[in-house]
C-alpha cells in the first residue's frame, strides 16, 4: 500500500488510466498520438498489434505496438499515461498464449496472423 500523500499526487494518473479500454498482448489497437509541429498540434494514428505491456499499474507503464509498414517492421513504445497519447481504440482482440509475443518479430505475412479472441469470458476482461 502506497503512502496516502503519494496517492494524492498520483490521483490524476488513476483518472487518466480510466480512459483506456482493456487491452493486452495480441490485441490490435489504434493509438492516437498528439504531435506538435511548431505551434500546431495534430493527431497521428498508429495502428498495430500490442506485443507487450510493461510495468503494469505503475506510473511508468508502457506498451509496445508493432506494425509492418512497407515491408519493414516498426515498433513504437508508448508510455500509457503520457499526455501525448490522446487515446487508444481497441480494433480487434487477439488470442495469444503469452504476455509478450516477441515471436511475432520473426514472422512475416501469413505466419504473423493472430486468431481473434471472441466472446466475453473472464479471461477476456483481464
Amino acid at each position: 500500500m502506497r503512502n496516502q500523500f503519494i496517492q494524492m499526487v498520483e490521483a490524476s494518473n488513476a483518472e487518466a488510466r480510466k480512459k483506456f479500454p482493456e487491452f493486452r498482448a495480441g490485441d490490435t489497437v489504434n493509438v492516437r498520438v498528439r504531435i506538435k509541429e511548431g505551434e500546431k498540434e495534430r493527431i497521428q494514428q498508429y495502428q498495430g498489434v500490442v506485443i507487450q505491456r510493461k510495468n503494469p499499474n505503475t506510473n511508468g507503464e508502457s506498451f509496445t505496438v508493432r506494425k509492418v509498414s512497407n515491408g519493414v517492421g516498426v515498433e513504437r513504445i508508448f508510455p500509457l499515461l503520457s499526455p501525448n497519447i490522446d487515446g487508444v481504440d481497441l480494433v480487434r482482440r487477439g488470442k495469444v498464449r503469452r504476455a509478450r509475443i516477441y515471436y511475432l518479430r520473426g514472422r512475416m505475412g501469413k505466419a504473423a496472423r493472430i486468431k481473434e479472441r471472441r466472446g466475453n469470458y473472464a479471461s477476456a476482461t483481464k
Binding site: R2, N3, F5, I6, V9, E10, R34, N59, G60, P79, L81, S82, P83, N84
Partner: peptide, 21 residues
C-alpha cells in the same frame, strides 16, 4: 520527505519527483 514518484510535465516527458509535506 514523503517519498518519490513520477509525473508527466507539459512536454509529455516523465519526470522523477519527490513529494514533500
Amino acid at each position: 520527505k514523503i517519498g518519490m514518484t513520477s509525473l508527466f510535465n507539459a512536454d509529455g516527458r516523465s519526470v522523477a519527483c519527490t513529494v514533500i509535506q
